[in-house]
Each structure stands twice: as C-alpha cells, then as structure tokens.
Design a protein around this nucleic acid. Structure first.
Lengths: 168, 168
DNA sequence: ACGAATTATGTGACGTGTCAACTACGATAG
DNA sequence: CTATCGTAGTTGACACGTCACATAATTCGT
C-alpha cells in the first residue's frame, strides 16, 4: 500500500525482531501488572513509586526528587500521588524550607503492601524472563537497551524509571 | 526494606538489564509516538490499526479478525474504533451475513494519513534502534522476545500486535 | 419451533498518561 | 522595595486500557 521510494523499510529479520519485541513487552508487563494487582492490590505504577520511596528512607522526599528519579513528568507524578494518597499508600506533608514544595512519605500500610508486592513482582520477572535467559542474553539485552537509551537521550544518563528487584 | 528469605532477587546484571529494558521501551515508544503525532496527527494505536487494515484489503474486515490479529481485547478495540471513526480514519458498516457483526473499512483520509505516517514510523525505528544494532543483536533481540512470548502464552503463537515496517 | 447457551459488539466507570494552563512561592535585578 | 522571572506543584481536558456488564443476534438441543 505504501510506495515511497526513498524509505529504508525493515528487512525480514528486523521486522520479526521488532514485532516480537513489542509483543513481548506488552504481554510481559500486562502479566506482571495483573499478578501484582491480584496479589497485592497495587498497580505497576503504585509499585514503582513505593519501591523508590522505600529506597530513599533518609529524610523526607520531595516531589522533584521522585520525578527525576523515576523520570516521570511532574503532572503524571502529581496525578499518581493523588490516587495513591486516596488509597492510603502515601501521605503528603508540607515542606518547611520551601512552602511550594511537598514531602512524600510512605504510610505503614504502603510499606506493608510493598513487602507483599515485591516478592510477587520479582518472581514474575524471573519466571517469565530471566529464568529463560542465559548470561550472554542478559548482557545482550542490557547492551541493546542501554545503547538505545543513549541514542534517545544523548546528554543525560537515566537512573531508574523502574522497579527494584534487588534485595536492599 | 524487604526481607523475605526465600525470594530469589535479581543479581546485579539482571537488575541492570531489567531496568534498562523498561527504560528503553518507555523512552523509545514515547519518542515514536510523539513523532507520529507531530508528523501525521495519529497515535501509535491509530497507526497500528491503520496498518492492519491496509494489510488486509481483500473484502471487508470484521472486528473479531482485527481483535485477534492485534491481540487486543474487544472492548479496547471498540473504544479505539469509536475514536477513529470520530476522527474520520475509518467507518463501520453493517455486516449482511451476521447482523451482530460490523465491518471496518479504511476511509480515503485514513489511507492518506497512513501513507504519511509509515515512513515517519520506520525512520524512527531505524534511527533509534536498528541502525545501532548489528545483525547478531537483531537476532538476539528476536530470540529473547520470542522466547518470553512463548513462556507467557505457551499454547497459541502471536501473529502481530504491532506496526508494519516492511514494504507491502 | 422454542428457549437456553453462545457469540459479536457496545457502554460506563474508573485508573492511567499527556498537554497546556494555572497558582503560589522564591529569587533576583533595578 | 517592587517588578519580574523562574520554580514547585496542581488542575482540567482529553486519549487510552481494563473490567464488568448490557444488548442483540445466532446456534443448538430437544
């Protein structure tokens, strides 16, 4: 249907890899999300925020720190925190130094839920992904991913948008 | 923070690969989506549907075919098609054989937009991903992805949730 | 043929993500 | 000191996805 002559279309191998990659990601995250929701009552987004907060227990955390750490837009984070507050996972408190800012703190309930969720999450990541990969594939996945990240954001290096799966 | 003793946490390499993978996917799809939106006025979801329809020009397409082909839930597809109809990209018409069903057809406007969008899409996929990968990495990505898909859905084999990047 | 399952699709509510505009505070120049 | 500019965060509108349920047509057993 499409006939532009100067377009470098993907070859068959690239095409297969691309479609498999997209399929894999959507199916994997859907499954992990469902297991987290069924087993711990939280979404993936909730979980990521809970993990980040639990990894920074020293002093109160400000929104901008969180937004930068997760590489989320501030309005996305604001909406997410509003929902999490409504669910009792976190609380917002006023920041004394800068009255524009807000501190985010984990509630005990949030911490409990995180401790339920983390093993579920890592078990899924293992079962569906890493248990099937040999070490060279793990490194290949890392190299491909990191290279692409660098191409997309040549300047800054990302820290961690994602969920913790190591023991603290 | 989390101390369950029987959980097999990810080791450092796995952790790096996992976080990079998630970061890479979110940044890559966000960029492709924005380029598609800016350059052709359609979202990624719109684009995927347009591609699928253009690849099946023989006779009218029924919703279930589309849903199965894209591996989308029916209600997701229904909502998407409602939005695309409102934007004039597709039309629904009644199916004579089975009056419950609906035929989906591409409008001329939809076809035009697809022909604008496709080169933009493939250019992004090339620039950000495949131009940086050597053939062995392409195959590695395919193997890792397909293996994971098979683990997630051991019975059925996925066809194509995703967008066309080969010349028809 | 009749009523019960099954199938194809639609709808409404809600959670999630993006964009643009807004409020409120802080910092800085004059 | 005040005008202005930038910063921290919120809000509202809308697109997207999922879930559960609704509606309507076909199929199937008897």
């Amino acid at each position: 249907m499409i006939e532009q002559s100067d377009v470098r279309w993907l070859n068959d191998r690239e095409q297969l890899a691309w479609r498999a990659f997209l399929n894999m990601h959507s199916q994997l995250t859907a499954r992990l999300n469902r297991e987290l929701q069924d087993g711990a009552g939280v979404s993936n987004s909730d979980y990521v925020v809970l993990v980040w907060l639990s990894e920074h227990p020293d002093g109160p955390v400000r929104m901008l720190e969180l937004a930068r750490g997760l590489q989320w837009e501030k309005s996305r984070l604001s909406h997410q925190l509003t929902r999490m507050t409504a669910r009792g996972l976190i609380e917002r408190s006023n920041c004394s130094e800068d009255r524009r800012s807000a501190f985010i703190v984990l509630t005990p309930a949030g911490r409990d839920i995180l401790e339920t969720a983390a093993p579920i999450h890592v078990a899924g990541v293992r079962r569906y992904l890493f248990d099937a990969l040999d070490p060279s594939q793990v490194d290949a996945l890392h190299a491909i991913s990191q290279g692409t990240i660098d191409r997309l954001a040549p300047s800054a290096s990302a820290v961690s948008t994602t969920a913790s799966t190591t023991r603290p």
